[in-house]
Amino acid sequence: MSISSLTDREKECLRLLAHPMKAKDIARETQLSVYTVNEHLKSARRKLGTTDSLSAALMLRAHEDPPKNLDTTESGSLPPPDPGQSRFADTSAEKTVLGRIAAVVPLGSRGRPWNDLNLRWRLVWPILLLGVVAFGGGSILAGASELSQLVIALSR
């Protein structure tokens, strides 16, 4: 259950999956069959103890490129502000909030090209969308009803 137990081919398939590529594209890129690519991904999932290949690919990416926290100094305090930096520039707090919002929106973005929402959000989004559609449809019907009442009242 560690990254070191992965073979080079499994790592290559996971890297390409995180790139993002589908198994068919990975097979074309590595000149392997789709079946072989799927077997490499399955083996990597088993070795890393994950249930899906994307999680395994993200684990490999996190292991190979650990996130660097450039927002703090050695002591953990915030660095002094850069005098040349605009006061309207994105701060790390704003980026964190935007990252949290992007984590629940089921749309592709630069860092996340496909939907990787957790189960709770996969259940909530259709309900929210249905509510918005119902509200919009109700508003249109109410407006049409009021307009027809106005036309009837003016025609008398």
Results as ranks from 00 to 15, higher is better:
F88S: 13
D65F: 08
P83F: 01
A93I: 04
E64M: 01
S86Y: 04
L78G: 10
F88R: 14
D90S: 12
V97I: 12
L78F: 15
T73H: 11
E64K: 00
P83C: 00
T73M: 13
P67N: 01
S77E: 14
A89L: 03
P83S: 01
L70G: 08
P66S: 01
L98H: 14
P79H: 09
V97G: 02
P81D: 04
H63Q: 03
T72A: 09
A93D: 09
T91D: 15
R87L: 12
N69M: 07
D65I: 05
G84P: 03
A93K: 05
D90G: 09
S86F: 06
L70E: 11
G76N: 04
H63V: 01
D65L: 07
G84H: 10
T72D: 07
F88G: 12
P79C: 05
G84Y: 05
P80H: 03
K95D: 07
N69Q: 08
F88K: 13
K68H: 10
E74H: 09
P66R: 00
P80V: 01
S86L: 06
A89T: 09
V97K: 11
E74Y: 11
T91K: 15
D65P: 03
L78K: 15
D65V: 06
P67R: 01
S86D: 12
T96M: 04
L70Q: 10
P79K: 13
D90H: 13
D71H: 14
P83M: 02
A93R: 09
E64L: 01
P83H: 02
A93P: 00
T96Q: 09
L98W: 15
N69D: 15
N69V: 06
S77G: 05
D65S: 08
P81V: 00
P66I: 00
Q85N: 03
L98N: 14
R87K: 13
S77I: 05
F88V: 10
S75A: 14
K95N: 05
R87W: 11
V97S: 03
D65C: 06
D65T: 08
G84I: 01
T96L: 05
Q85F: 02
T72Y: 13
P83V: 00
R87G: 11
D82G: 02
T73D: 11
T73R: 15
E74W: 10
S75F: 10
E94V: 04
K95W: 04
